[in-house]
Design a protein around this nucleic acid. Structure first.
Lengths: 131, 131
DNA sequence: GTTATTGGTTACTAAAGGTAACCATTGTTT
DNA sequence: AAACAATGGTTACCTTTAGTAACCAATAAC
C-alpha cells in the first residue's frame, strides 16, 4: 500500500535507503566513531592504544565502533600473526577523505561550545520562570 | 579516586564536559535533528509542516528532537495564541551558523554514498569467504 | 604458579529510539 | 446535535542501541 499524497511541501529526502543523511551520516557522526577517526588521523593505532587514547570508551564499544567503521570502508584492520596478537587500525583513503568535512564541524563545535552552554542555561531559566 | 596515569599517548580530549565532540556534535548530528535543521534552512515551519516534510518521523520524535535543538539554541519556538494553535519553529543565528559545516558534510555524504555501499558489499563478501 | 600483556567476546542492565493511541480545543460537515 | 478533521502535542508501551563488568586463550616475565 502506497502512502497517500501529502498535501503540504515536497519530500525532503526521496527514500530511506537513498538518503545519505540517514544512511551515511548517522553511522559516522555519533560520539565514538568520530573520536576514533580523529585518533587515526595521526596514524595507525593498535586496539589498546585507541582505548587508552579515547578516555572512557569500553572495549566493547571500541570493538563495535571499529567494526562499523570497517564495514563502511573508513578503516582498515590488519592482523599481524604474532603473540601477543598485534592488530593495527588505519584510515583508508575514504576515511582520510571524510576527515576534512568532519574537521570543519569539530572546529565549529569548539568555536561555539560556550555559546551553546549559555543557551542551555538560558533555556532552563526561561522554563523555570514560566513555571 | 583519580585514574592512574595511562602509559601510552596523551588524552585525545581533556574531559567529558569540555569535549565539543561529545557535548555538541552528538546532539547535533544524529538523524532527525540534522533533517530538521535542513528543513528549517528554507524558512520557519509549523509543527505539522515539519512532520509532513520529514518522512517517517513520528510526532514524539519530532517533539523530542525539536526540544533538544531548542535547548542548545539552534531553534526558536514561537507560539501564537490562536485556535487551533499555531506554533512556528525557526533557526536562530546559531542554527543558521551551524548549517554551513553541516552542508559540507551532507555534500560529502552524497558524493561518497555509492563508495560506502560498495565497501559494505565488499566487506560482507570478504567475511563470508573467510568463513 | 601467579601476574601481566594482547584483542577481543559474553551476559547483562540502562538509556535512547520509535510506535500507536489518546487529549483538549475549535471549526466544519451532516 | 453528532461526528469528523486539524491544531500541537503527551502518555504508555515496546524495541533497539549504548554501555559495564567479567571472562577468555595465548604467550612471556617473575
Amino acid at each position: 500500500m502506497k502512502k497517500p499524497a501529502k498535501p503540504t511541501g515536497r519530500k525532503l529526502i526521496p527514500d530511506d535507503d537513498d538518503c545519505p543523511v540517514r544512511d551515511v551520516l548517522a553511522h559516522l557522526t555519533s560520539k565514538w566513531p568520530m573520536l576514533i577517526l580523529f585518533a587515526l588521523m595521526e596514524g595507525p593505532h593498535r586496539f589498546l592504544e585507541l582505548q587508552r587514547r579515547i578516555e572512557n570508551i569500553s572495549k566493547r564499544m571500541l570493538t563495535v565502533s571499529l567494526r562499523k567503521l570497517e564495514l563502511d570502508g573508513y578503516v582498515q584492520r590488519t592482523v599481524y600473526p604474532e603473540s601477543p596478537p598485534r592488530v593495527e587500525y588505519a584510515l583508508t583513503p575514504l576515511g582520510e577523505s571524510v576527515t576534512h568535512p568532519l574537521i570543519n564541524l569539530i572546529g565549529w563545535a569548539q568555536d561555539h561550545h560556550d555559546e551553546i552552554r549559555q543557551a542551555r542555561t538560558d533555556f532552563s531559566e526561561k522554563v523555570s520562570n514560566q513555571g
